[in-house]
């Protein structure tokens, strides 16, 4: 959380332009920021290109110009040190919970038995013990996202990217899962240093983040970079959070 050290990720002058017939659409307008060992949220109006930015950071999408550096190295394709959690969970319907988690680590050069051990550990950590052989269809939304989280954690990633991870869940489930994700991130037993979460829920962002980057409507520019220096654990109903959220919302609209 100290920003004097080297940044883990450097987002350098990223622009994304979709060429169209006649006129092209600029989605991301030269965005730069550094990411340290911190919980970073990116908020902005819907459709502003937040998710595109996240995909570029993971190397799933290519920027029109600019680059993303991970410990000084340019990212061009997904790295085994970065885990991703999707809004729609993105679980393979014909794989069991265990199979979905194993999928993340089976391309690494780890022994089969070791892979199984790692997968089982993280399935336990997210509270899905006993559901290893269930299929995604048999699980509730909250449980599906737990599988998504276990799959990302099983990589033992240094950076965790989350794309609206709670917006497909009901309010109560989302609140619980938010707290658990923050707890996991704070737990020194996990190697994950940086979390980048994209959300349009400002309240959620100020509750979870150390720092909130606010994007404008398309073409997206950084309009604010807000530090949230509040004690953890935080209560989602803390009045200070409401004030912060109000300030950010006024910047967006």
């Amino acid at each position: 959380m100290s920003q004097t050290s080297e940044p883990i990720l450097q987002i350098k002058d990223i622009a994304k332009i979709y060429p169209g017939e006649g006129k092209s659409t600029t989605v991301l307008d030269h965005i730069s920021f550094d990411v340290y060992k911190e919980f970073l949220c990116i908020v902005g109006p819907s459709g502003c290109g937040k998710s595109t930015l996240l995909r570029i950071i993971d190397g799933l999408d290519k920027p029109t110009s600019g680059q993303v550096l991970f410990h000084g190295q340019a990212i061009t394709s997904p790295s085994p040190k970065v885990g991703v959690i999707f809004q729609t969970f993105a679980l393979i319907p014909w794989k069991t919970v265990l199979g979905n988690v194993l999928m993340a680590i089976s391309s690494a050069s780890i022994q089969k038995e070791e892979q199984l051990k790692i997968a089982q550990k993280y399935i336990q950590d997210v509270g899905l013990e006993g559901f290893e052989s269930s299929y995604p269809k048999e699980l509730s939304g909250g449980m599906k996202q737990r599988v998504g989280i276990a799959r990302a954690l099983a990589l033992q990633p240094e950076v965790l990217l989350m794309d609206e991870p709670f917006s497909s869940l009901d309010a109560l489930t989302a609140e619980n899962l938010r707290r658990e994700v923050v707890d996991i991130w704070r737990d020194p037993a996990y190697p994950t240093g940086s979390v980048i979460m994209v959300t349009h829920n400002v309240q959620e962002a100020v509750e979870m983040a150390d720092r909130v980057i606010v994007l404008s409507a398309r073409p997206a520019k950084i309009v604010d970079d807000v530090k949230i220096d509040l004690e953890r654990p935080r209560s989602p109903r803390d009045p200070v959070l409401y004030d912060l959220a109000d300030r950010i919302i006024s910047k967006i609209s």
């Binding site: 993971d58 997904p78 993105a90 393979i92 014909w94 999928m103 089976s106 391309s107």
Partner: peptide, 28 residues
């Protein structure tokens, strides 16, 4: 679906594994 393609790309499921574990079951 796109999200499945992105997840497999993000977790580096490629080549033969991609065909065997994703494409063939998806076409079943």
């Amino acid at each position: 679906p796109n999200d499945i393609l992105e997840a497999t790309a993000a977790y580096r499921v490629r080549g033969r594994r991609f065909v065997k574990e994703i494409l063939i079951p998806a076409s079943f």
